[in-house]
Amino acid sequence: MRNFFIDKLIKNTKKNNKNFLIVGDLGYNVIEGFAKKFPKNFLNVGVAEQNMAGLAAGIASEGYRVFIYSIANFPTFRCAEQIRNDIDYHNLSVNVISVGSGFSYGNLGYSHHAIQDYGLIRMFPNFAIHSPGDISELNGCLEYIFASNHPNYLRLDKSKYNQNEFRKINLKPGKLIKKLSYKKNNNKTILMTGACHNLLNKLKKIDEFKDYDINSLPIWGSKYKKKLNKFFEKYKKVITLEDHVLDSGFGTWALESNLNLKKSQIDCIAYDNLNIKVAGNKLYLEDLSLKNNYYYKKIKNL
């Protein structure tokens, strides 16, 4: 996903010299192509994320579309107040790119687990959250970002994706992508966001999900809750799926979106909010964080 992002950014910058990429001394073997092609539109600010975010706001205030790129929690929590006050409050065109969603960086430890980032970013009213699950969705997210003039948060999974699976889709906040339709007028669905395909494949083995549609929502955020009104009219039973903790995550966002409608019954599959103190790869840590989940326990019993 990282390479797809950079390639797409390079292509867009050839047409638009107002793109500006800032990295926080990260992006080895990914960002070099951009830096070489557009040295006047590129900066490595060093290991200094507060400055990176504030500086990005300053450059954006001069009419640029700025991308700040780092991994995990560094471009979000480390500079949370700069994002809140300088970027979001002034509604500047700064796009926060975080690589390594969920447990992508597995055994690098808790500092590198981006599992609470939705909770932070979805508090900011001007931000759209982009959590693409594959490169087709990523492409749609980037097309939207390149045309937008508000702040965006793009969360990139570290997995490699098969380019052959690419198909062009147009995306905007609240637009659902139907991944699987079990039957016409079905009123049960899994609603997922982000890179949780492994988890989805496990869930599909549970009998009660066999007749569920599968929908994906790649772009969402604080101000887009009403966009799901029709969706909740249609689906009476919704199971949300994400690679993030339950607290202030995607599932609870869906619950909040349904609050005034009370149309759907929503259950969430999301991580327990644990301080993980052991090493482990993505699958291991996911298993650890979901072992108490009602539905996940059913997988374990299969």
Binding site: K40, A53, L55, A57, I59, E81
Partner: peptide, 23 residues
């Protein structure tokens, strides 16, 4: 140019403006 109130925000913002105008 910028709403502030929490300290330590003005200089990074100003630095961004200075950098791009130098470029």
């Amino acid at each position: 140019e910028l709403s502030t109130g929490s300290l330590g925000h003005g200089l990074p913002f100003a630095t961004g403006i200075a950098y791009i105008n130098k470029i």
